[in-house]
């Protein structure tokens, strides 16, 4: 059994940022990541909204932070068991690691909605239907192409796939998809100026700083079209393109159009690790997201002493929000550890 001051579960932006801030405060931090690679969902990102910052810059900054002398990083170390042992927490992993520490930070993050559950949208059935994550990967390698390997003439983005959907049990808004669709459509236009981009939405929620400006920019500078209506059926055309159907609710008329790519803006759900560990420890809240004791005043603390939360294991958050939350968590843990040594 190895001792540490803090075990941080999850090597994504939240976990790394918190670990780094704790390490700077001279705490011995163990950082466990279930995958071969760190960065979590940041791994696949191309650019970040709203300022189009290159995600690789964020990745190298995060990587640099993990190199801090007080941090020991373990990869391929999926956590199997978190349990309380007197005043300590014991964290065991699938590859046989076993840690004991006075504090644990859960930063196990989110997973994206499995779009195959919305069969009528054709994901997993028609090759031209892809997720926002897959589209981001296309952008990253600079190769936006249709199933046939051709340049798309028209791309549609559909918001709220797996969010605000009572049929799949997710009543909540994932918050990041609207602005992400704006970002993706602009990036698509940057790489393929000839392409037509359409965003289909139920409501457009541009609540963050500079979001509204970006939305405006997408209209003014990039000719992105916005259609208020939810696509409810997708069918293949004879030439292997996709016909999407929605109601253009503002003109009160049904609308159909042929597109080459349909990008589903998939929502955020609690990751399997978040759900499992939350269940073990007893901090599961709604939709399997973890629950802090007070949203307003103690959002990183849980009902268990020494068990803290950071990032999207709590709810859908943007990258800046996640990082800020991680720093706040580090501060809480620092105070907690200091209170123990007094």
């Amino acid at each position: 059994m190895n001792k540490a001051d803090v075990v941080v579960i999850g090597g994504g932006p939240a976990g790394i940022e918190a670990a780094y801030n704790l390490a700077r405060d001279n705490h011995k931090v163990v950082l466990v990541e279930k995958e071969e690679e760190i960065f979590g969902h940041m791994q696949t990102a191309y650019t970040l909204f709203p300022n189009f910052q290159d995600a690789s810059e964020i990745r190298s900054s995060l990587l640099q932070k993990t190199k801090h002398g007080n941090i020991t990083l373990y990869n391929n170390a999926e956590v199997t068991q978190v349990s309380r042992e007197n005043d300590f927490w014991r964290v065991q992993t699938i590859n046989g690691l076993d840690f004991i520490a006075p504090a644990v930070l859960l930063a196990s993050g989110f997973k994206t909605f499995d779009a195959r559950y919305k069969e009528e949208l054709g994901y997993g059935i028609y090759k031209g239907v892809i997720t926002s994550v897959e589209f981001e990967e296309m952008l990253k390698v600079g190769k936006i192409q249709t199933a046939n390997g051709e340049k798309p003439r028209r791309i549609a983005f559909l918001n709220c796939v797996g969010s605000r959907d009572e049929k799949v049990g997710n009543h909540y808004c994932s918050r990041v998809c609207c602005i992400n669709a704006v970002k993706l459509s602009i990036e698509a236009k940057k790489q393929l100026p000839e392409v037509e981009a359409y965003c289909f939405y139920m409501d457009i929620r541009m609540s963050g700083q500079f979001y509204e400006e970006l939305y405006r920019k997408s209209q003014e500078d990039f000719d992105v079209n916005y259609i208020r209506g939810r696509i409810s059926e997708v069918a293949p055309t004879f030439d292997n393109r996709l016909q999407v159907k929605c109601e253009d609710t503002l003109s009160q008329t049904p609308l159909k159009m042929t597109v080459d790519l349909l990008v589903l803006m998939i929502g955020i759900e609690a990751s399997e690790g978040t759900a499992r560990i939350g269940e073990q420890v007893g901090v599961n809240g709604e939709y399997n997201f973890s629950k802090s004791i007070s949203l307003h005043t103690a959002d990183n603390k849980t009902k268990h002493r020494g068990f803290f939360l950071a990032g999207t294991c709590k709810r859908p958050l943007t990258v800046p929000e996640t990082m800020a939350d991680a720093r706040a968590a580090a501060l809480e843990i620092d105070l907690y550890l200091k209170s123990l040594s007094q």
């Binding site: 069969e119 059935i125 059926e233 069918a235």
Partner: peptide, 9 residues
């Protein structure tokens, strides 16, 4: 069945 295209396919 039009909402379960995999049946049609």
């Amino acid at each position: 069945t039009h909402l379960t295209p995999s049946i049609i396919i």
